[in-house]
Write a protein that binds this DNA or RNA. Sequence first.
DNA 1: TCTCTATATTACTTTATAGTTATTTATGAT
DNA 2: ATCATAAATAACTATAAAGTAATATAGAGA
Lengths: 135, 135
Amino acid sequence: MHSPSNILRHNVKQLDDRVLAYVADYFQALSEPLRLKILNELRGSARNVNDLTTRLSCSQANVSKHLGVLARRGFVVREAQGTAAYYRIADAAVYELCDLVCGQIADRLRDEVAALKSLDGAAERRRTSPASRAR
Amino acid sequence: MHSPSNILRHNVKQLDDRVLAYVADYFQALSEPLRLKILNELRGSARNVNDLTTRLSCSQANVSKHLGVLARRGFVVREAQGTAAYYRIADAAVYELCDLVCGQIADRLRDEVAALKSLDGAAERRRTSPASRAR
DNA sequence: TCTCTATATTACTTTATAGTTATTTATGAT
DNA sequence: ATCATAAATAACTATAAAGTAATATAGAGA
């Protein structure tokens, strides 16, 4: 028999469509800038809707909607406190993901910057060397 | 001055909107089951469009479109070979991501299964203990 | 050149979702 | 009970994207 982890991680061929949909859904939840901002605000401490609304300067309805999305996916949990609703991270593992992605993006950017720099250097060399001016 | 990685990883407050959009976009590219299938097919070896079309049993136009999305995001690279177009993974780092997500999902499922089992156990105990039948 | 085949692209339809405004629900205070 | 406040929801608009069918493009071979 397989452990769940084995099924998901190593059954490379013929990935079950439901699992695939689940993974896609997971990524989808993280594919909105505002939701990323919300998750970022929740690093460290729980916050209520009003807090988030002002800190992110967007509409209350919109924040509530996105929090709903995150809650339905199990990324955050709601906790009522008086008339306020505090949300906190339920699955801190998302941050691993975000950091991994950020790291990868940083690597890409570094590469692009390096490429641009070398292009720039080449252009500089062309500019200062009259020989290559001839075409 | 900051290194790019520091800017991205640790400038927690006031994340630059463009960076956020970039990250969201990165996740977005991974939020379609068919694209995940394609990436999965490209583990190991490059494949051409026709291969992918038959292996994934979907339309050629659709595969091409999704490959275009993945290529524009830098996940895959295209290499023409005669009239065929072979695509291969450009950024193997995605697999880290996918595996991380799969692992996290596996953890969640394990938790859910455990929760269901304990519920089930409780129900079983209720069923076999006449005392708690009274309501 | 003409034809076949592989891929890309275009135009289109359908569906999903972000954001807005207005409204509802629920709690606490007077 | 009434009022005020916080959050959720509904109805709506606008936009983006997936999938399809048809067409365009481009290379290989006769």
